[in-house]
Write a protein that binds this DNA or RNA. Structure first.
Lengths: 158, 158
DNA sequence: GGAGATTAGGTTATAATATTGCAATTCTAC
DNA sequence: GTAGAATTGCAATATTATAACCTAATCTCC
């Protein structure tokens, strides 16, 4: 299971290590972590809530970056390709990945109240994929699972 | 596992039984399967490919139905609530469900070539949900899984 | 069967998300 | 240093979804 976001933690470490992993991965793959791309990654990691592409635009603008939609979508596509971020389809939003290294299954729990997302172990989803391949003859190339509900904190609050 | 869409079948049966199930379910729940709603359901069932809301509009228009976006979105929302259709988030599209009866986990394989979707057994996804509840203390209310890849036919074609 | 409540549908406008196409620039490898 | 590739800037537009407000149909209960 990935790191538990519901435990108290120094979030700067999350951001810093995300950038460090990104840098390493880009070097390894011969990809370029340009200023926009790095800044988008940092902004996605600003907290543990999936962020919309259009939420990033004004923040980039403030900092003097170009801020037209294609800029942020291109950066996000780049990060998605490297598995540095995941897309939460049901929210049209993006969130940082804790164990990047090319595209891999996306499996998250998202709280409908606070919006925080917790990455989950995707082992069971792999089972579904293997089962479908065996029983139906399909070939699975991508997987995503999204669970929605209430996180521990928001249950307590209610 | 739900019916296998890759096997030859008389598709009229799919549509007819979908409508029959819908009628029964609506009766049971005291909901009204109005003409627009039934027609939208039939159109969603026109084939086994997820269909976009905006693809339905012109077809409804041809048949003299009102055809503004809210009309089709309302019909789709109604059908979603009853579990008669599912939303494929990664495609912004909708597909008929073979075993309706209020909202339930959505689990599909979608072919990236032909676009056909095959509903899968969601038992493993339930396991993920229970695991997340046990280990993280979250409460899961909704689930969706989407697998992407190549269906048997499109593998053969390639 | 009629009054009031509820549900469904019509209409217009607009919000939110995402992409296309092309020109300009920067980087990389030779 | 130059050709080719990757990246960015920019303007326009496509696609998906909802808001707000009103009218009409249907239900419920007496």
């Amino acid at each position: 299971m990935a790191q538990n976001v519901y435990k108290a933690h120094d979030h700067h470490v999350c951001i810093d290590s995300a950038v460090a992993r990104a840098r390493a991965l880009c070097e390894q793959q011969g990809a370029r972590l340009t200023p926009v791309r790095q800044r988008v990654l940092e902004l996605v990691w600003a907290n543990h809530k999936p962020v919309g592409a259009y939420d990033l635009l004004p923040k980039l603008a403030e900092e003097g970056f170009n801020s037209a939609p294609p800029t942020v979508y291109r950066a996000l596509d780049f990060l998605l390709d490297l598995g540095l971020v995941h897309r939460i389809s049901s929210l049209n939003a993006f969130i940082g990945c804790t164990h990047p290294g090319e595209a891999h299954p996306s499996c998250f729990f998202v709280c409908r109240e606070c919006g925080e997302a917790q990455e989950l172990d995707a082992e069971q989803v792999n089972k579904i994929a293997r089962q479908a391949e065996a029983m139906l003859g399909v070939r699975v190339e991508q997987q995503m699972t999204e669970l929605m509900g209430l996180c521990p904190r928001c249950q307590d609050a209610a």
